[in-house]
Amino acid sequence: MEQDETEALKAELRKHGILTTTFEELYNWGRKNSVWPLTFGLACCAIEMIATTMARYDLARFGAEVFRASPRQADLIIVSGTVTKKMAPQVVRLYNQMPEPKYVIAMGACAISGGPFRDGYNVLKGIDRYIPVDVHIPGCPPRPEALIDAFMTLQKKISEQQLTGEGRPRHLYAELPSEFKVPDYGEHGLEPTENAEVWNPLKVIQG
């Protein structure tokens, strides 16, 4: 109710040529319109990601054309393609090297679940086993429109993040981790097979 009154007051003031905003709104508006992704591609999905950045689909319209070659300068990692078990520790390491606040888009069937290669001996069954994913995109590969949709979903998510209070995002809690365990190469696969702190798959409740 209070929120509605504030919005009404703001709309009223705008009619008189007075622009009001909050620090939170301004801060998130700036953040969501300059998300810099990491130059990072894994498989065929990366070709679609590249197409998305070029003139026809033009990701620059969303302020995200600056693909950075260093994780230290990136806000977003687009996991675009099959993550092999041999590559998975490097993906987690790149995520760990990014400064907060950082976001993850898992692009395509492989990145979200292993996809058509799920039963392969060297394929990770979804990157969300090791790092927290903000937006999942299905598709094999997803079209550039799907990636743009995911990007707009992420922008919406960023603009709704609170800076204070109980509902603030993970990176604003000092005690919560910003780095996650890099899995080790084991004799038969990766160890551990998932990070229970991060991975929250849907569960079937029987009964």
Partner: peptide, 9 residues
Amino acid sequence: PPADDDEPL
């Protein structure tokens, strides 16, 4: 292949 990574802990 290790089947154990197919189900959640």
